[in-house]
Amino acid sequence: MNITPDIPHLDPIRLQVRKHALLNEVSAKPSRRWWRFAVPSTALVAAVAVTLVLWTPTNQDASASWTAEPRAPVDLAPMIAACGKTLDQMDAERGLEGRPVWPAPREVAVTDQRGDMTMVVFTGPQSEALCWGTPKDVGMSAHGSVEEREPLGDRLFADLAPRIGMTEVSGGTSTTILTGRVSPKVDKAVIVTEDALEVTASLGNGWIVTWWPSRGKPKEVRLYDGAGVLLETAPVPVRSR
């Protein structure tokens, strides 16, 4: 038998219709699904940067000094200024080929200090940036959208997800950084990881941020109000890419 049956040519008009639909699709700006594209690339850059920050010989053991609770804040002005320079650069390059079209976030929403690492989350209507570092170095991972962020509404939390995860090649030490949004009703958020760590996140202006010294995925979030009453225990949604 002839296993190569003749195939008629596609109708030229239909071919053009499909071509134009294809080109329209590939030229469209990503909107709701921007995380899919923004997170992997920025996370990769961030992972490299954090690896350098955390495991250079001059800064050997950030994970060893990690605590489940954030420590009292110290003067963050120098770090915020350093992060601001990176945000200035983002705005200067805004709209250039391969660069974000959204404005860099400028509001300091929440900070977290534990171990040798300090983190600052900047937010804006369309974007947010996670800036982290030690007194020796600073790194940043920013995400944004052409659309404004969807309001929380009646939800107690949203967008809760590990933003950056990495493992040190030589020593096997790992780090996961998580950010998310919470309702004004929430006064305390505890993340439970699949390797049984219970991590109290830093919280401010409707945002939380924290990190832990493993690649254990966040399994559950416990949300408390100002009186310490448990508002909700919920699984941390698995984000598909």
Binding site: R18, K19, V26, S27, E97
Partner: peptide
């Protein structure tokens, strides 16, 4: 990032992929 070039490649190879 040139979508026009992608359109040319589509016209060139769409029939083979379709078959």
């Amino acid at each position: 990032g040139a979508s026009e070039a992608f359109g040319q490649l589509f016209e060139r190879h769409a029939q083979a992929v379709f078959a």
